[in-house]
Each structure stands twice: as structure tokens, then as C-alpha cells.
């Protein structure tokens, strides 16, 4: 009986800890993103893809930046959250075609990504080129 009380007490502490972690994470996330809809999934916007396709071909991935740090670009895509690996060979271009750095990306930026899945197991998408698109997408004719 005493053991059960101890187990229950410790279990309650763990449960409260889990809930606190979850609530804290949600608080941090919504504090940054706001409560404007589902920010982990986005409807693919047409964007100025005509120019992109002419120059680079059809992008492999499109979405909005959630987080951009050296090594990883977290996106919200039409399939949900996706993480893209970026490395020293990845090129970053802005709307005008000028070179930029991964640190220049801001949360909410619309991007088109060109790259491929890792040959070994296919679970890592390595970006070759990331192009930032204008914030207001134009509708594809």
C-alpha cells in the first residue's frame, strides 16, 4: 500500500511535468507564431513560379519557413512540417535572385526548395537551392 502511494505520487509528478512541458512548448510556439491558423501546414501558393520554372525547373518542395538555422530549415508545407538539411553547398537566393544566407530567412518566408532525398535511406532531404519568394504570391495563369 505504501509502495502504491509512492508510485502514485511520483507518477503524478511525472504527469504534471509532462503537462507543463506541453503547455510551455505550446506557449512558446504560439507566442512566436500567433494564433493565426495552422502554421505547421500550409496551402501551396502558386507564387511567381513561372519565373522559377523557367530558370530552375519545377521546385521539389514549397512551403513557409518555421525556423532557419545553420544545418536545418524547418518548413510548413502542404504535407505538414518538414525538415530540410542545408549545408555549405546549398545556395540561397532572395526574390531578386541575389545570394543570401540561411540566417537571413525569417519565420513565415515563402520558399521554393530544390534538392533531393538522401540516397542512403531517403529520409533526409538535402537542399541544393532555396529561393525566397515574394510575400504576396501572384496567381499562376
Amino acid at each position: 500500500m505504501a509502495q502504491r502511494h509512492w508510485l502514485t505520487a511520483i507518477g503524478a509528478v511525472i504527469l504534471v511535468g509532462m503537462l507543463v512541458c506541453g503547455a510551455f512548448s505550446l506557449g512558446v510556439y504560439y507566442g512566436k507564431q500567433g494564433f493565426s491558423g495552422d502554421t505547421l501546414r500550409t496551402t501551396p501558393e502558386a507564387g511567381p513560379l513561372v519565373r522559377l520554372r523557367d530558370e530552375f525547373g519545377q521546385p521539389d518542395l514549397r512551403g513557409r519557413v518555421r525556423r532557419a538555422v545553420p544545418g536545418v530549415l524547418d518548413l510548413a508545407t502542404s504535407e505538414g512540417p518538414r525538415s530540410v538539411e542545408v549545408n555549405t553547398e546549398t545556395r540561397f537566393l532572395d526574390e531578386s535572385g541575389a545570394t543570401m544566407n540561411v540566417a537571413d530567412f525569417r519565420s513565415g518566408d515563402l520558399v521554393a526548395v530544390y534538392g533531393e532525398l538522401n540516397t542512403v535511406a531517403g529520409r533526409v532531404f538535402i537542399a541544393r537551392l532555396v529561393v525566397r519568394l515574394p510575400p504576396r504570391a501572384t496567381v499562376q495563369p
Binding site: 512541458c21 506541453g22 510551455f24 512548448s25 505550446l26 512558446v28 510556439y29 512566436k32 505547421l40 518555421r66 525556423r67 538555422v69 544545418g71 536545418v72 524547418d74 505538414g80 512540417p81 529520409r123 533526409v124
Partner: peptide, 21 residues
Amino acid sequence: QLKFAFPASALPERLVVYLYL
């Protein structure tokens, strides 16, 4: 290289990703 690939500051957002999933 895939394991523990995010800094501690990213963990809250990663947990939100899990809750979303």
C-alpha cells in the same frame, strides 16, 4: 548526424511538431 540534431532552444517547437502529428 540525424540524432540529437536540434539545440535545446528548439525543443519546445519540436515538441509542438510532435503534438501536431
